[in-house]
Design a protein around this nucleic acid. Sequence first.
DNA 1: AACGAAGTCAACCGCTAATTT
DNA 2: GAAATTAGCGGTTGACTTCGT
Length: 190
Amino acid sequence: MAPKNIDGSAKKVALNKGAWTAEEDQKLSQYIEIHGAKRWKTIALEAGLNRCGKSCRLRWLNYLRPNIKRGNISDAEEDLILRLHKLLGNRWSLIAGRLPGRTDNEIKNYWNSHLRKKINQKEKVVASAAQEVNILTQETCTITHADVEGAKGSGTSAGNLDMNTFFDFTIDGSYGLEWVNKFLELDEDP
DNA sequence: AACGAAGTCAACCGCTAATTT
DNA sequence: GAAATTAGCGGTTGACTTCGT
């Protein structure tokens, strides 16, 4: 690991940081077009960019490479991100891999700025709903205990909600599984 | 119009994994 | 097999923009 060049006393020239200029973009694009995107340190040097290889790689992957989509994440894409995040967690590069033209950085930003809020709001709603259900359940239990002798064998009323069944997702048929299977199939591809 | 708060997003940092020497 | 180098990932930062007062 090279030490950071803070005071400029070393012979090494301080590398550029911060936003990329159009000129830098052009240099990088042109170089990669000719030589390919390999060995980023060499690319940075030979393209005449006063940047570290890491910075060049990031710029290329997130903005300069072809077929990059920018902005306007569709509802379908958003839905996919939500599902993938549920499945994979913060594995942004994996999630991005399932969204053609999208980058891990973009998805990460989108998640942090848009979706996290949505999720939090949803969770609040779900939590309050669950609390309500909990109260109802307790009431149902009280009624059941009181009436259990008389009700035995007489069948169930429509209002008698079985919470174990309600929250048992294992018997929820193929919900989500089809998609997960497709996902896993894709993952097995080389 | 001016100001501060909140939101957005490009870029950097630190770390690990993979590859090369 | 060990050390050095490179690639890639996720978290975080900071500059800029938008919004509300």
